[in-house]
Deep mutational scan, measured.
Amino acid sequence: AKPPKTVTVKVEVTNADGETQTRTVTLTNLPKDLKPGDTVTLPETGQTARIVEITP
């Protein structure tokens, strides 16, 4: 079996106070056609994050 493909992405997350924070997260099994501006759900927090940058 192939190991899951991990991708490092820079995302913007809005916290409970309405502040936008930029975080770098490593995600696995992202859709192939994901692009900056799309939103993903962070598995560890369940927060919705907007992708700023994808590092191949």
Rank of each mutant, 00 (worst) to 15 (best):
V52G: 00
T45Y: 05
N29T: 10
Q47K: 05
V52P: 00
V11T: 01
I54D: 02
D38H: 04
Q21F: 08
T41W: 13
D38N: 03
P56H: 14
P3M: 07
G18L: 02
K10G: 02
G18F: 02
Q47E: 14
K2V: 15
E53G: 07
N15C: 09
L30T: 11
V52D: 01
T14R: 10
P36G: 02
E12C: 06
T55S: 12
R23W: 08
K10S: 06
D17E: 12
D38S: 05
D38K: 02
L27E: 05
E53M: 05
N15Y: 09
G18T: 01
L30H: 11
V9F: 01
V9L: 10
T41Y: 12
A1Y: 04
T26R: 10
A49I: 06
T22C: 08
T45L: 07
L30P: 15
A49R: 00
T6S: 11
K35F: 07
P56Y: 05
P31Q: 13
T28Y: 03
V40P: 00
L27A: 08
T6W: 14
T24H: 06
E44G: 12
V13D: 01
P56M: 12
V25E: 08
P4R: 08
K2F: 14
E44Y: 02
L34P: 09
T6E: 10
D33I: 07
E19P: 03
T45R: 03
K5N: 15
T39A: 06
T45E: 04
V40E: 00
G37N: 04
V11P: 00
N29L: 03
V13Q: 03
T41A: 06
E12I: 12
L27R: 03
V52I: 14
L42I: 10
E12V: 12
P36H: 04
E12F: 03
V13F: 15
Q21L: 12
T8V: 12
T45G: 07
K5R: 14
T14Q: 10
T8M: 10
V9N: 00
L42N: 03
E44T: 10
P3C: 11
L27W: 02
V7Q: 12
D17H: 13
G18P: 01
G18E: 02
V25C: 04
T22N: 05
N29E: 15
K32E: 15
R50V: 14
P3I: 08
T22I: 15
A16S: 12
G37W: 02
P36K: 07
P4S: 13
T8A: 06
T55E: 12
E12L: 12
K35P: 00
R50Q: 06
D17Q: 12
A16T: 09
K32G: 15
L34Q: 02
P31M: 13
T26M: 08
T26W: 02
G37Q: 01
L42E: 02
V52F: 01
Q47T: 08
T8I: 14
R23M: 14
T26I: 13
G46K: 04
P31C: 14
V13E: 03
P56Q: 10
R23E: 06
T20S: 08
T45I: 09
G37S: 01
I54M: 07
L34F: 08
E44K: 07
R50C: 04
L27Q: 04
K10D: 02
D38L: 03
E12P: 00
N15T: 13
P56T: 13
P31L: 14
T6K: 09
K5F: 15
T41S: 08
K32P: 15
I51L: 05
L34R: 02
R50A: 03
I54H: 02
V40R: 00
T55C: 12
I51V: 14
P43H: 07
E19L: 12
N15W: 06
E19D: 09
T55N: 12
T8L: 10
T24V: 13
I51E: 00
T41N: 09
I51S: 00
A49T: 02
E53Q: 09
K32C: 12
Q21C: 11
V11N: 00
V25I: 14
G46W: 01
T39Q: 11
V7N: 05
T48N: 10
Q21H: 13
A16I: 10
V40Q: 00
E44C: 10
V13W: 15
P4K: 07
V40H: 01
K32Y: 04
G46S: 04
L30D: 14
V7M: 10
P43Y: 03
T20Y: 08
T48I: 12
K2I: 15
K32H: 15
P31I: 11
P36Y: 06
T22H: 09
R50D: 01
I54W: 04
N29I: 04
A1R: 05
T22D: 03
T22M: 12
V9I: 13
T55F: 14
L27F: 04
K10R: 10
T28V: 15
L42G: 01
A16C: 10
T24P: 01
V52T: 05
N29H: 10
T20K: 13
P3S: 10
E12D: 05
T39N: 08
E12S: 09
D17A: 13
A1W: 04
T20F: 07
Q47G: 06
D17W: 12
V9P: 00
E53K: 05
E44M: 09
D17K: 11
V9T: 01
P4V: 12
G18R: 02
L27S: 10
A1C: 11
E19H: 13
V9W: 00
A49N: 00
G46T: 04
K2N: 14
G46P: 01
V11I: 12
D33R: 04
Q47L: 10
V13M: 09
T39K: 09
T39L: 13
P36L: 13
V7K: 05
G18I: 01
T6Y: 13
V52E: 01
E19Q: 11
D17M: 13
T6A: 13
K5Y: 15
P4L: 04
P56K: 10
D38M: 09
K10A: 04
D17G: 07
T28W: 01
V13N: 01
V11H: 00
D33G: 11
L30W: 15
